[in-house]
Amino acid sequence: MLIQVINLQRTYQMGSVKVEALKDASFQIKEGEFVAIIGPSGSGKSTLMHILGCLDQPTAGSFLMEGQDISAVSENELAEIRNKKIGFVFQQFNLLPKATILQNVSVPLIYGGIRGRRRQLELAEKALQQVGLGDRLHHRPTEISGGQKQRVAIARALINNPALVLADEPTGNLDTKTGKEIMDIFRQLNKEGHTIIMVTHDQEIAEQARRVIQIRDGLIQKDEVIA
């Protein structure tokens, strides 16, 4: 089992108020799945994604990734898991604006301890070629379109060959046509065996996944497999 979420809780202390972003969430995700987590804003889906992405840790309950309990590991180990096992694709693309897209894609390799700058750049170039940007290597993020930016982000997410690709509203900043292209890439990646979890508030986008988990007020409301 890739992911096991058991009675997950996450509470924030906002001044004197306690906010229960996640009240009680439990589900499992197997390798090779394409899951959409859907819910309106404030439903706790972002919090859930942060925990699944090992950016945050639960207040109570447990989150197991490949059998390892993430709730109990150190900050350094979390960073290592993010680097090796998780690839992020964000709504805002989150590329480093002052670096070329080739440099951007190579960043996870630097922190992953892949030795040799030339080797890093070779790997990054290969990854960019796979998303069809082999001719834009030395452009900066400001010089390419939104769709291209998201492809760079996908190349970056995949570069360390992660166990899980986490996409947060990956089409949120794109027009319909480009969004569709990005979704096609995700479906293709899933066909090739990548596990994908996508967080969205858009029903139409969510339905392109193979399983939809609906969340509302910090609770799992519905968990259904689409035919």
């Binding site: 950016l55 993010r82 996870p108 922190y111």
Partner: peptide, 16 residues
Amino acid sequence: TREIGIRKALGAKRRH
């Protein structure tokens, strides 16, 4: 700040 967040998401440790 955002760059630091991105780097951390991509696996940068504190010492990096």
